[in-house]
Amino acid sequence: MKVRLVQNGLFTQIDDIADALVPPANGFYWVDANLEDLEMLQPLFQLHDLAVEDCLNDEEQRPKLELYDSHYFIVINSIRFDDEEIFLRALNIFLFRHTIITVTRQKINEIRSIKPVLWEEEVNSPDRFLYHLVDLVVDNYFTVGDRIEAKIETLEEDILVHTKKSHLNEIIGLRSEILWLKKMLVPQRDLIWALNKRELRLIDDQLQKYFGDIYENAVKITEEFETFRDLMGNLREAYQSSLSNRTNEIMRIFTALTTIFMPMTIITGIYGMNFDNMPELHTAHGYYAVLAIIFGVGLSMFLFFKKKNWF
Score class of each variant (00 low, 15 high):
residue 4 R to Q: 04
residue 8 N to M: 10
residue 9 G to Y: 11
residue 16 D to P: 07
residue 25 A to P: 04
residue 26 N to D: 12
residue 26 N to I: 05
residue 27 G to L: 14
residue 28 F to Q: 10
residue 31 V to I: 15
residue 31 V to G: 10
residue 37 D to M: 09
residue 37 D to Y: 10
residue 38 L to G: 15
residue 43 P to V: 09
residue 50 L to H: 12
residue 51 A to W: 09
residue 52 V to H: 11
residue 54 D to L: 11
residue 55 C to E: 07
residue 57 N to W: 09
residue 60 E to T: 10
residue 60 E to G: 05
residue 61 Q to D: 15
residue 68 Y to G: 12
residue 82 D to G: 10
residue 84 E to N: 14
residue 84 E to Q: 12
residue 89 R to Y: 06
residue 93 I to Y: 08
residue 94 F to T: 05
residue 96 F to T: 09
residue 104 T to C: 15
residue 110 E to P: 04
residue 110 E to Y: 06
residue 110 E to Q: 14
residue 112 R to M: 08
residue 113 S to A: 08
residue 114 I to S: 02
residue 115 K to P: 07
residue 116 P to C: 08
residue 117 V to E: 12
residue 121 E to C: 10
residue 125 S to D: 07
residue 130 L to C: 06
residue 135 D to E: 06
residue 137 V to Q: 00
residue 137 V to I: 10
residue 141 Y to A: 04
residue 142 F to W: 10
residue 148 I to M: 14
residue 149 E to S: 12
residue 159 I to F: 09
residue 161 V to T: 15
residue 162 H to R: 15
residue 162 H to E: 15
residue 163 T to V: 15
residue 166 S to F: 13
residue 167 H to E: 13
residue 169 N to R: 07
residue 174 L to V: 12
residue 177 E to M: 08
residue 177 E to Q: 15
residue 179 L to W: 09
residue 179 L to Y: 09
residue 181 L to F: 11
residue 183 K to M: 13
residue 186 V to Q: 07
residue 186 V to I: 14
residue 189 R to C: 01
residue 190 D to R: 01
residue 197 K to G: 01
residue 213 D to M: 12
residue 216 E to C: 05
residue 219 V to Y: 00
residue 224 E to R: 13
residue 231 L to E: 04
residue 234 N to K: 07
residue 240 Q to R: 12
residue 246 R to K: 15
residue 252 R to V: 14
residue 258 T to D: 01
residue 259 T to E: 05
residue 262 M to S: 13
residue 265 T to F: 05
residue 266 I to Q: 02
residue 266 I to N: 01
residue 266 I to W: 06
residue 268 T to W: 01
residue 270 I to H: 11
residue 272 G to D: 05
residue 277 N to F: 09
residue 277 N to A: 13
residue 278 M to F: 06
residue 279 P to R: 06
residue 282 H to R: 14
residue 285 H to D: 11
residue 293 I to G: 10
residue 294 I to Y: 04
residue 296 G to H: 01
residue 298 G to N: 01
residue 301 M to G: 01
residue 305 F to Q: 00
residue 306 K to Y: 04
residue 307 K to H: 09
residue 309 N to T: 06
residue 311 F to D: 07
